[in-house]
Design a protein around this nucleic acid. Structure first.
Lengths: 222, 222, 222, 222
DNA sequence: GATGAATGAGACTTCATTCAT
DNA sequence: CATGAATGAAGTCTCATTCAT
């Protein structure tokens, strides 16, 4: 009586397909992957994929989530190891920059860009960001207690800022792929340390609304 | 019968189509726009588009270029106005952040992500980045002469870094759309000023290769 | 280990599946049901169905047969009870009309329409019709002996006619679902009684071939 | 300046495709036709069909409407010719029966059955039925004035009934294809004349709800 | 210059059926 | 007996591109 042959086999195959999909995702971009491409990569017949996923969008969603979780998991595990507060930040955030390959970066930007157009992706981005920001927020706060982080900074906002600064590293990898990685890291170290350090210019000068002469109306030809 | 194709009219119509394409680009993403969508938006019959462009990829290329030129043009015109060096940086880079709408950001990330997969887009990104970096490089150098910018910084690398920091602002707009824009700008002001300011922590501590425990192998399930 | 397949259990499960299939048939139509839909409705895994049926068409065939047998069985059991001849007709044929729900009617018309395109369905329809006509024929004949039915009528043709008249009731249910059922029955009663009654207009006027100005060539746009 | 090349050409091609679709409809049934089948029959490439129709369902809808309009148009044109009231009825309704080919009948029953499952088809059926019933209603009323039609009959209900009786002819064509057409017509003539004739048994006997021993619960195996 | 008809490949998805377990 | 994995064809529909007019 072979009842449910294997709920574990199902999950394994599912993961196998997701990994194949992820390879396609790297090659083609989040929204440009095709179901047949995935099936070919996974070595299954067209349509068999629908035993594991309801529709293509479900796969894309999982792919997007997985890309972001990669960052969050790494941060969490780093925090779990424990270190003096500011060191954690510099260590981990610059470590993040170490992964700097164009593909990783492209994956991230695909997801971020997609979040501007698909509510489901947007939700995933928001959730992941909130999770990471919460973790970092605690660290920043501790850093302020220890006197290593400027007490003028709002911890929540600083946490958001730090996450975005890490995206800079990804951006740099795409914009200037030839740059020496070691030196890039040193600069990020400087960016983060000087941003957090007490006594940093507290930016109280610009209260008025800045003239928007740089980025024009979003959707028209410049 | 004038066989000459009136180059002025031709160019005008071409631009009109590109503008329509750009609106589609905002809606759908760089690679997801469809030719029919563009034609509909531009109010021309399908196929007539091929009087102005050889193929869809040409349009995408021009769109990508146009998105990046938007930033470069703005920077150039800002520099042309002339100001004390460091002020220019802070002003303009934070001003760029002011454009912070999700759409503008998504456009940029679409182009950057695409550059990891299409050599033609990559070339465009590199060229534009080089141009902006050149401009900023001169400004940084002048800042160093004036004593406003730390002389330890390599001007070329600092310029690259500054451009990527501006991308942070775009990233922040997508990751945390609810954040107060005024406060975000103040933080960016702080990031840039403290990064450039003389005496910033020079990040000389980490020379060894950082452990890559944050971002795993790019294309495999974490 | 009993290799014998317990014919009772087998038949029971088979019937269970057929009943599930019939529910799907009501929902989707004779040819639009899908095997997976049936399996889901029957609560069995896909493919297990093939232990009971060789292919989908076999199920359809049984479904069609079952729909028609429904009518035949009812007629037979009614006749078995015995009653004055004409009363049987009116009683039973109008009783049939009482079942008048759109679903029942749609099922019947699905089968009839299918019989024009599939020889196997056609055979089923012919057989069932012949069976019912035989039963009714005897009743009509008895009615003629008793003087309740017009002796001008050919009993076999009258029987066929009566069966088709019952289809009218089904048609009415689909064409005019809002009509009061009680009044519809009264009209059917009148149709049948007046058709059978002695002295009815014997329709001897039209011998020539009628001009076909109503229904044009079957498969062309009118 | 070839502006709109031909709005008439478009309509012509559209009709051409609809005719091809109608031929497929005859072959395969209303819901079983496939878009590729239609394209092949119409001699166009797959997908070109979507220049003329938004989706497959639109075609089905037009096909269904066209099948019903065939009957309505014929009735209207017959009425337009004018004749003594009861003659019109007998003439035309029996004439309808003359079209008695299995295919025509199958088409009709496909549409009727579909109307039980698709609201759009149901609407079409209701509209067409209402139109025909209106026309016949006037005729019946005139017949009553002239004394040719029983004044006990409710004209609207009688009209509905007459239309359904015509469906009987279609049903007969499918149930007993071998029957002599001439004799079938004579019987229909009798059915209609005796139904309408004054003095017909007014069926006032059965007021109670009839036992439903003929058609069982609609969706379960009998 | 401009239209819209036309094509054919390929997109996503469903389905009948088979087979190892 | 029963499951669910697997297949491959076919279904509906979209799309980039070409061409006659």
């Amino acid at each position: 009586m072979a009842r449910t042959i294997d709920p574990v086999r199902h999950a394994a195959k599912r993961l196998e397909i997701l990994e194949a999909a992820n390879r396609c995702f790297c090659r083609s971009g989040l929204r440009s992957i095709s179901v047949s491409e995935i099936c070919a990569e996974a070595g299954i017949g067209p349509g068999h994929l629908y035993h594991y996923f309801d529709c293509k969008d479900d796969i894309i969603e999982e792919l997007a989530k997985s890309r972001l979780d990669t960052s969050r998991d790494a941060l969490d595990s780093a925090l779990a190891r424990g270190s003096p507060a500011i060191e954690i930040l510099v260590d981990e955030v610059t470590a993040l920059a170490a992964g700097n390959r164009a593909t990783t970066a492209a994956l991230l930007f695909d997801v971020l860009a997609d979040s501007a157009r698909n509510e489901s992706t947007a939700r995933i981005v928001r959730e992941c960001h909130a999770g990471m920001a919460d973790s970092l927020c605690a660290v920043v706060r501790q850093g302020q207690v220890d006197g290593e982080v400027d007490r003028c900074l709002d911890p929540r906002q600083a946490a958001s800022m730090l996450i975005s600064l890490v995206d800079s590293a990804q951006s740099l990898a795409l914009r200037d792929p030839g740059m020496d990685r070691q030196q890039a890291l040193q600069m990020f170290d400087r960016v983060i340390r000087s941003f957090l350090a007490p006594g940093g210019s507290s930016a109280t000068t610009r209260q008025e609304d800045l003239p928007n002469h740089f980025v024009p109306a979003p959707c028209s030809q410049g």
